[in-house]
Design a binder for these strands. Structure first.
Lengths: 205, 205
DNA sequence: CGGGATCCCTTAGGATACTG
DNA sequence: CAGTATCCTAAGGGATCCCG
């Protein structure tokens, strides 16, 4: 038995042995957004030591959760089908964790991957399906995302781009996803689209 | 910032700061089954050092996930409403982790709480609702449980008791929950009730 | 420059003994 | 029974270095 095994035989224990180590699920979270290179992962997890990142990537690979994929001379890490099955767990943690989120502290940063998962967590497909297709360019304190909503489909991409409305927010994303748009500043576009955004993305009370 | 914070501001990160430490979610899993005393928790987590159990209980309490409840001179730990909201996460990990479970190894044990969560994970309310109410007394290698299914309702209690059928299993619970009843031995009752059990509890492929 | 490997130090976690 | 106290190991943190 590996030293850090829990010595029990059941699903929860096995899952925690595979992805329960520190940083493990955050790497999975970032890869749920899309394939990433080593340096991109390191940039999205600013406090992770490089040796830990390397170790976790090997462990996740050995467990069949991620794979290294060569993309024309550069290597990207991507989730396997089995790894993608962690999405409900990650979204569940996101839903649960948001309820315990305080005001953001000075040293806490927003990352593009974290915001992407937050948007997926808050996304209301039913509400979105009843609204016209809309694109939003959102500047989240250093994490610029382009959000596309078409019917019940959601896409989120890094970086800015043309969109129906462009806005920037303060750091308190939780407040915004709970319907408080007071920290939002519209850069261009019809301000009423903010209401549409608030209907489309909303965390449960 | 606490030394072990991740330095990010989002739901997944916050959740992992609260319950992502080693043993944290296993304690939550055991308390999802019901309130437990300190000694019961220690018995259900045989490899946890007692100082770690004490530390985790304090942390979970400070986070508002569990509370100490006096029950006439003895103290039990129980989940708060917020702690119970972790149930989907724990069941999600269970579902996911079962797919990565190998044959049980010699040193791996079954615990009553682990088996209870496994049964909840495998429970098929739709199938159960179409079957008559049934009680099962199952002996899982040292974890005796009494399982009651009434319509789409499931109850699992520790210990044996009168039941429609009584059986004992080998250690490979995963195989059994995947439909392979070859390791099961009926102690008394109508053997055909095993089929009913297999329809009621079944992990997805 | 991307993708790591190495070093040293700190601290969480494991084993065990002990106490109210 | 319900935890503390202690000691020790090994994982994690942080900086730096290496290599194709």
């Amino acid at each position: 038995m590996a030293a850090r095994d829990y010595g029990q035989y059941d699903g929860v224990t096995r899952a925690l042995e595979l992805v329960g180590e520190r940083w493990g699920l955050l790497i999975v979270r970032d890869l749920l957004v899309g394939p990433r290179r080593y340096g991109e992962l390191a940039a999205g997890l600013p406090r992770i030591p490089t040796n830990i990142l390397a170790t976790r990537l090997k462990e996740l690979q050995d467990a069949g959760i991620i794979r290294r994929a060569p993309r024309s001379r550069i290597i990207v890490y991507e989730l396997t089908a089995y790894g993608r099955e962690l999405e409900p767990v990650v979204l569940g943690l996101s839903t649960w964790g948001f309820k315990a989120l305080d005001e953001p502290r000075e040293e806490q940063i927003l990352t593009p991957a974290g915001m992407t998962i937050a948007l997926r967590t808050a996304f209301r497909p039913d509400a979105a399906a009843a609204l016209p297709p809309t694109s939003y360019a959102a500047g989240f304190e250093g994490a610029g995302l382009t959000i596309g909503v078409t019917g019940a489909d959601l896409t989120v991409e890094r970086g800015g781009g043309p969109a129906d409305i462009s806005f920037s927010t303060g750091p308190d994303i939780r407040a915004m996803l709970c319907g408080d748009m007071s920290g939002v500043r519209v850069l261009h576009g019809d301000e009423r689209l903010l209401d549409r955004f608030a209907q489309t993305f909303r965390l449960a009370a």
